[in-house]
Amino acid sequence: MTYEPVYTRTPRNAFVPSPVFVGIVAIFAVSGYLLWTKFGNVGVDAFLFVVSGWLISLCLHEYAHAVAAFFSGDLTVAERGYLRLNPLKYTSPLLSIVLPVVVVILGGIGLPGGAVWIDHRYINSRLKDSLISVAGPLTNVILAVVAAAPFLLGLGPDIFEAGSSAFAVSGHVDFWQALSVVAYLQITASVLNLLPIPGLDGGSILRPWLSPAYRRAWDTFAPFGFMLLFVALWTTSLGAYFSDLVSWLAESLGLNTGLIAAGLDLMRFWN
């Protein structure tokens, strides 16, 4: 028996941002202002700024997948609420929100989360399938450049190196430290999401072009790819290579690794 997809009506408010997303953006804006003015506990402000900024990027990442799928033929993403930037609508809030936020807080890495569910029966092209997968990582790349733009343009703080690690900065230091962390997380997310590993976006970009036999083997390994990468980053030399790569990319975008490290310490206000 062959299943024929049925036309799905797009809800009228399908592209209206959800109150949840608007609230996250509000927290990001307010905490950024508090950091700039040094109002209240700057550690708490930095924590809220970085975490809310990361949540916004998670929403935009999954939104990019959903929009690409919608215009490629899968109208069901609108019914599921994926086009409203609501992180609570994702297939796995634990993997999409909780785990990435915990890793950001503890490890300072933008770990990829769970994805929106795409009905590939509506996608009739391998190229479209790959474009849907690449839309998310491309969003992280754009966000990394946007967050790093003030540093590239010379609008950031004055940094005075003193030895290998000590330095002094001037001008709204707490804000610039936190913003450098926001940019750094987008760089780490871009690199990780583009790795050709089953279960990640990089693997999904390649999957449509594999032969049926290789695709079946790929799908068998996919559920474990994410966790194996997570373990490898913390227990093998892969973590060191990854750190060197993202540090080089960060410096190429005008970021200072010392400023990033200070920002990570600042947001961990409980230390």
Score class of each variant (00 low, 15 high):
residue 60 L to K: 12
residue 30 V to W: 11
residue 154 G to V: 03
residue 33 Y to P: 03
residue 113 G to N: 01
residue 240 A to Y: 09
residue 110 G to E: 12
residue 254 G to W: 10
residue 244 D to N: 14
residue 264 L to M: 14
residue 120 H to S: 12
residue 252 S to C: 05
residue 177 Q to D: 03
residue 183 A to E: 14
residue 270 W to K: 03
residue 212 P to L: 08
residue 243 S to G: 09
residue 102 V to E: 06
residue 264 L to H: 07
residue 121 R to V: 09
residue 142 I to A: 15
residue 62 E to K: 08
residue 47 F to D: 13
residue 116 V to F: 02
residue 31 S to F: 13
residue 74 D to T: 13
residue 166 A to E: 05
residue 158 D to L: 05
residue 268 R to K: 15
residue 159 I to L: 10
residue 221 F to Q: 00
residue 124 N to R: 15
residue 93 P to T: 04
residue 170 S to D: 07
residue 156 G to N: 06
residue 69 A to G: 13
residue 79 E to I: 02
residue 260 I to R: 07
residue 249 L to D: 06
residue 41 N to M: 03
residue 113 G to E: 02
residue 46 A to T: 13
residue 59 C to F: 10
residue 257 T to A: 01
residue 70 F to G: 12
residue 140 N to W: 07
residue 104 V to M: 15
residue 218 W to C: 00
residue 127 L to I: 15
residue 14 A to F: 04
residue 171 G to Y: 08
residue 53 G to A: 13
residue 228 L to T: 04
residue 118 I to S: 08
residue 171 G to T: 04
residue 218 W to F: 15
residue 92 S to H: 06
residue 59 C to G: 14
residue 256 N to S: 13
residue 14 A to G: 04
residue 201 D to T: 01
residue 233 L to W: 08
residue 189 A to E: 12
residue 78 A to N: 06
residue 86 N to H: 09
residue 213 A to V: 06
residue 271 N to E: 09
residue 166 A to D: 04
residue 114 G to W: 01
residue 24 I to C: 10
residue 98 V to P: 09
residue 37 T to P: 00
residue 115 A to C: 00
residue 48 L to F: 15
residue 232 A to R: 01
residue 45 D to V: 03
residue 138 L to H: 01
residue 173 V to A: 15
residue 34 L to G: 07
residue 216 R to H: 06
residue 235 T to N: 05
residue 71 F to W: 15
residue 194 L to A: 00
residue 137 P to K: 02
residue 93 P to M: 05
